[in-house]
């Protein structure tokens, strides 16, 4: 079964979705990513969805879930590179992904992630937002 690669960059994990997401793939990513966060004790996760041009409510919800799970595991999550059509679809579906950080591209996302992680005191752990 195909899997979405999760790359480790220092204390961050980088996920680039380059294929069409289907439900099982999204669930596999959710499993893999949470596992990797625990294994590497990553401080931040960056999910690049710039190649994703179709989303449905399930994928949208899974993205939100992944972000919430990462936060519980003490890793900030930034979703970057969302296409206009995808953003409109998610809003129309009633999934504005509250509580997920977003940025325009990977570079800006990385900056946001660094700032977010630097702003936290070490061992601060999960805070309800």
């Amino acid at each position: 079964m195909e899997r979405i690669p999760i790359l480790k960059m220092g204390e961050f994990l980088l996920v680039t979705i380059q294929v069409d997401m289907h439900d099982r793939l999204a669930l596999a990513l959710q499993d893999d990513l949470t596992q990797r966060i625990v294994d590497t004790s990553a401080r931040g996760v960056l999910i690049d969805i710039s190649a994703l041009d179709v989303v449905d409510s399930f994928i949208g919800r899974t993205l939100g879930n992944i972000a919430a799970m990462s936060r519980i595991l003490d890793a900030e999550t930034v979703v970057v590179g969302m296409r206009p059509a995808v953003a409109i679809t998610l809003v129309e579906l009633g999934l504005p992904l509250h509580g997920v950080r977003t940025a325009l591209d990977v570079e800006k996302g990385m900056g946001l992630l660094r700032k977010a992680v630097a702003g936290r005191r070490p061992g601060d752990g999960y805070r309800a937002q």
């Binding site: 979703v79 970057v80 969302m82 953003a87 998610l90 977003t102």
Partner: peptide, 12 residues
């Protein structure tokens, strides 16, 4: 609000 939410999803 929809417009604002969509722009936020794009990181703005």
């Amino acid at each position: 609000l929809k417009t604002v939410a969509a722009a936020r999803l794009m990181g703005a």
